[in-house]
Amino acid sequence: MNRLDRYILKIAAVAAIVLLLGLTGVIWVTQALREVDLITGKGQTVLIFLTVTLLSLPALIAGIAPVALFMSTLYTLNRLNGDSELIVMNAAGVAPHRITRPFIALTIATSIVVAWMTISVMPASFRMLRDLITLIRADFVANVVKEGQFVSLDSGVTFHYREKVGDALVGIFMQDRRDPAQPAIYLAERGRTVEAEGQSFLMLEKGTIQREAKNTTTTSIISFERYALNLSALTGDSSGGPGEGDGDKVVYKPRERSTWQLLNQDPNESYYKIQEGRFRAELHNRLSAALYPFAFMLIAFAAIGEARTTRQGRMFAIQSAILIVGATRIAAYAAWTASVRSPFAAALLYILPLAAIVLSAAFILYGERLRPVLARLMAPLTQPLIGLAARFRRA
């Protein structure tokens, strides 16, 4: 890497790091404010609050890093053009695709970080967050909920006990309406929170479980002498988290499982049979994430990688690049959502960035030939817009 490459790489890398830290910090603060209830409502320490919020950082970094790279590429190329450095390079015989070398080096580093986050760090952080929330929930039930109060533990879960005798809760009532099709009510004379094998349980004694089927008047009542309610079940969402009937085994969601577990998934697992589409979507979303930094960088370079003297043409190119990247990201999210139901949609997670990479690379290498063709194709769309803008200027 010569001096020119190091010069461009320094500008782009500093801009990418500043953008990544700034965007991540702003979004992290907004998410952290949503968790203030851990301190104010659930009686947890500042350390627990910071731990819970910091565990969301890997997901933020993985999502923001490609966007930060795209913005840094636009910034660097616009700065080089504004200082006439691109014009000097072009006059010195430096081809536009030759300038991509420092950006490709930065993109490879970004792609490695994104792949590491999505394949390894994110699943581990989600798993740690699940376990930590379970412990917080157990501590909240045992030590924070006040006697005689009805408290919402989660969306659709209400907990109440009459009094506390020693470490036992007496007169327990819990209503679980997270599944509208089968709401459940737990009644027990007493219970206590216990930990076993790193998991937290609410051990209920002498009670009943009442379940009512939707659109029927049938109510099933199950009596028990002892019942272990896995508190990790209360941390699941309604989109596919395991229910309380999972016994003493915690069933982790697809995003909480390692990539190796997703690749070697047991097809006979009952939870996998119910949520096979989510497992497929999660796996392909992780494996395709590393392609998007290359797609976004090349889109930015294809838009403004060549020297231009007109400010209007350059601004139009920047706006077009932003729209293309936004459309690509939205389409990728739609493909990820659709891949839960369709294996073909999972293939789109790879097709979208690869198509952007191929088309952008072709435009960088053969821009002089493709630009007139693109102008003719876009003329029916751009002419009405130009006429409308001229009409507004005259007005």
Rank of each mutant, 00 (worst) to 15 (best):
H160R: 15
I172D: 02
M117C: 11
V121K: 05
A105G: 08
I136G: 02
D139L: 00
A109R: 06
N143R: 15
V194C: 09
D131S: 15
Y161T: 06
V165C: 09
A109T: 11
R178H: 07
A124G: 05
V114T: 06
H160L: 15
V113K: 00
K146I: 08
I108H: 00
I136W: 12
V114Y: 01
S155N: 14
D179V: 14
T110P: 04
L106E: 11
R177V: 13
G198P: 14
H160E: 05
E163R: 14
F126R: 11
L132H: 06
A196F: 02
R177L: 12
E147D: 11
A168G: 06
L153S: 03
V165L: 02
V157N: 09
V144M: 11
S200P: 00
R127G: 13
V145N: 08
A168F: 07
Y186P: 03
A168N: 15
N143V: 08
S125V: 01
A181R: 08
R127Y: 11
F159K: 13
S152G: 12
I185W: 10
R190V: 05
I119G: 03
V165Y: 00
A142L: 14
R178K: 14
L129I: 07
F103T: 03
V194Q: 04
S200A: 15
F126G: 02
S111F: 01
P183M: 07
M128C: 00
G198S: 10
A196D: 06
R137H: 00
D176F: 06
R162M: 10
V194G: 05
A124V: 10
M117Q: 11
V113L: 11
D167T: 07
L106H: 08
F150M: 12
F103S: 08
I133P: 01
A196I: 06
S111Q: 01
S200W: 11
F150Y: 15
E197P: 06
A196L: 08
M117S: 03
R178T: 09
F140Q: 12
G191C: 08
V141Q: 00
D154L: 10
M122L: 09
Q182V: 07
A184K: 12
I172R: 05
D131F: 04
S155G: 08
D154T: 13
D167C: 07
G156P: 02
A188G: 04
I104F: 15
G166S: 12
L135Y: 10
